[in-house]
C-alpha cells in the first residue's frame, strides 16, 4: 500500500512539471497583457503535431524536435499578437475571451480538416525504458520531461528578473505608459511576450508526445488545466505556476489511485472553486486579482 502511495506521488510530481511548463506560458501572457488565451492548449497541440510529423516524416527523435517547436511556436505567437491579439490588449476581458475562443475554434478545426481526428502515437526505442527501485518505477521519458520542464520554467524566471528584456516585460505589465516613457516599444514587448508564452507551450506539446497520443482536439483540456494551475499558484506569478502545477499533478494522481480518473477532475475543479472563494490571488497571495 505504501509503495502504491509513493508511486502515485512520484507520478503526480512528474506530471506536475509539465503542468507547470505550459501553465507558465499561460500565466506570463495573462500577467503581462491581461489576456486569457483560450487558444492556449491549441498552441500545445500544434507543438505536439510538429514533433509528430518530424518524427514520422524525417525520423527525428522527439527530443531533437524541441528547438524546432520552440522557434516555430515563437514565430506563430509573435504573429498572432501582431495581427490580432494586439487589438484587445487593454480592452475589457470579454473581448480577449471572444477573440481567443475564436482562435481556438479555427486552429483546432483546421487541424481536424488537415490531420483528421485519428489519435496518433510516437513510439521510440526507449519508450518503455524505466528506472526501477524498491518496487517503484520511474519512466525515463517522464523523468527527462520533468527535468526539462523545471529547467525551462527556471530559465523563464531568470530571464524575467535578470535581463534587460525581462525588466522591460515587467515594466510594461506594471505601468504601460511609464514603460513607454522609458523608451520601451510596448507593442514589441507584447509580441515578444506572446511569442515567448507560445514557445514554451509548444515545447510542452513536443514533450507530451512521448507519453500520450496526439489528436487535433487535445488542446482544450490543457487550457482548462492551465487555468486551474494559475488560479492555484497566482495569475501572472511565475513561481506560482510551478507550485500550482505540482499541487494539481499530485492531487490528480492520488485521486486516480484512490478513486477513479473521473474523480480527479471533479476534485481538481472543487479545489479551483475553493481557491477562487478564499485565496483568489493564489496560494502565495502574489497573483493578480482583477
Amino acid at each position: 500500500m505504501s509503495t502504491l502511495i509513493i508511486q502515485s506521488l512520484i507520478n503526480g510530481v512528474l506530471m506536475g512539471g509539465i503542468y507547470a511548463l505550459y501553465s507558465a506560458g499561460f500565466s506570463l501572457i495573462f500577467g503581462v497583457m491581461g489576456v486569457v488565451n483560450i487558444a492556449h492548449g491549441d498552441l500545445l497541440m500544434l507543438g505536439a503535431f510538429l514533433t509528430y510529423w518530424m518524427f514520422v516524416g524525417l525520423g527525428l527523435d522527439p527530443f531533437l524536435t524541441l528547438p524546432f517547436s520552440l522557434l516555430g511556436l515563437f514565430a506563430l505567437g509573435y504573429l498572432m499578437q501582431r495581427l490580432a491579439i494586439k487589438r484587445v490588449v487593454g480592452a475589457p476581458p470579454i473581448m480577449s475571451y471572444i477573440l481567443t475562443f475564436g482562435m481556438h475554434l479555427m486552429i483546432s478545426n483546421l487541424a481536424l480538416v488537415a490531420w483528421t481526428a485519428d489519435p496518433r502515437t510516437v513510439t521510440t526505442a526507449y519508450s518503455g525504458a524505466h528506472l526501477a527501485f524498491w518496487g517503484l518505477t520511474v519512466p525515463w521519458i517522464k523523468l527527462i520531461t520533468f527535468l526539462i520542464s523545471l529547467g525551462v520554467v527556471g530559465a523563464l524566471y531568470l530571464l524575467l528578473h535578470h535581463s534587460q528584456m525581462g525588466r522591460a516585460i515587467q515594466a510594461t505589465s506594471q505601468d504601460r505608459e511609464m514603460a513607454r516613457l522609458s523608451g520601451i516599444k510596448v507593442d514589441r514587448v507584447y509580441a515578444l511576450t506572446f511569442g515567448l508564452g507560445a514557445a514554451i507551450t509548444g515545447l510542452a506539446g513536443s514533450l507530451v508526445v512521448s507519453f500520450r497520443d496526439v489528436d487535433p482536439g487535445m488542446g482544450l483540456p490543457y487550457t482548462i488545466i492551465a487555468f486551474c494551475v494559475v488560479v492555484l499558484g497566482g495569475m501572472g506569478y511565475m513561481p506560482g505556476a510551478l507550485i500550482g502545477g505540482l499541487i494539481l499533478g499530485v492531487v490528480g494522481s492520488v485521486c486516480t489511485m484512490i478513486f477513479t480518473p473521473g474523480w480527479s477532475i471533479a476534485i481538481t475543479f472543487f479545489l479551483l472553486y475553493l481557491m477562487l472563494l478564499w485565496r483568489p490571488a493564489g496560494i502565495m497571495g502574489k497573483g493578480i486579482v482583477e
Partner: peptide, 24 residues
C-alpha cells in the same frame, strides 16, 4: 519626464527601476 507621484515600477527593486531607466 518625472511624472506626478513618481510612478516607479512598484514590484521591481530600486536597482531594476534604475536599470530600466537606462533602457535606451
Amino acid at each position: 519626464l518625472v511624472p506626478e507621484g513618481a510612478r516607479v515600477f512598484p514590484e521591481m527593486t530600486c536597482r531594476d527601476n534604475l536599470l530600466l531607466g537606462g533602457y535606451l
